[in-house]
Design a protein around this nucleic acid. Structure first.
Lengths: 136, 136
DNA sequence: CAAATTACTTGCAGTCTACAAATTATTTAC
DNA sequence: GTAAATAATTTGTAGACTGCAAGTAATTTG
């Protein structure tokens, strides 16, 4: 299938657009960081930086910004004082919930014009594809 | 379905990663600009900027950079001298072909472990979804 | 033909990025 | 047990990306 390229570019652009337009006050990158933290239990900086596919030095500054905005908190890890554990503040969690809600609404809106079978097929396909692509 | 959020974030991240790792010497943004130009016939700056979802001022500078790299050329439009028509140079076209080839290979690699039916289903689903999402 | 509009560029200022080097804490080796 | 190596994070620096406001030049409108 040669049509994969237009589909790839268009889908990628649309999803990026949805993500961006679902973020009011923070950037897509910051939203991704908050989301990754929300998936984990008190992760270290390194862990999240790697999950977010971001250089640790860039990540360190982003966490500084997010901390200043009151969305993330850094706690020294007692077992090893080089390490900081990250968690979302209440406000940070609210933001993740809000952004995800907006994204979900937009996706559901796009799926709304499909019949049940088609919608299930598309969702299952996205899931299968996502699994195959995860980790490049 | 509540699982749409993890699928959305993971898929979005994977596709971005594939795009980025398929670009050696230019950025994702520049690759997207080249790709949009490749779809069109001598488009104006405005046209491509809008297609790429990018502010015209940022776009103007990116075109300057791409022109310096010898990937894009700007031709004054005779019918209206405010307008510049954009086109890919041979080198620019080669770059689009190379990037798209790498992306396609990575996608095909991910689809390779599926049977024919599943692969067709996934491709058709991506296409359907892309259509529904296009234009937000 | 003067005023408004359009297509594009430039000034500026803020954000994002990553490499190199620094800092602080921990582990390893003798 | 301490000096050297390693690890987690931060800071210096410098370049790329972004968009608003203001500028320039060409065209359209009244």
């Amino acid at each position: 299938m040669d049509k994969i390229i237009p589909i790839f570019h268009s889908l990628s652009k649309s999803m990026n657009g949805i993500h961006k337009s679902s973020c009011d006050v923070i950037s897509i990158v910051q939203s991704s960081i908050l989301y990754e933290i929300s998936l984990m239990n008190k992760p270290s900086m390194q862990t999240v930086a790697e999950a977010a596919g971001m250089d640790i030095t860039t990540f360190s500054r982003q966490i500084g910004t997010l901390e200043k905005k009151g969305l993330v908190s850094r706690t020294p890890y007692e077992g090893d004082r080089r390490i900081y554990l990250l968690s979302l503040t209440g406000q940070g969690n609210d933001m993740v919930v809000a952004i995800n809600g907006t994204i979900a609404a937009k996706m559901e809106n796009a799926l709304a014009s499909m019949n049940d079978f088609e919608r299930e097929t598309v969702l299952r396909s996205m899931h299968v594809l996502e699994e195959r692509l995860r980790g490049n």
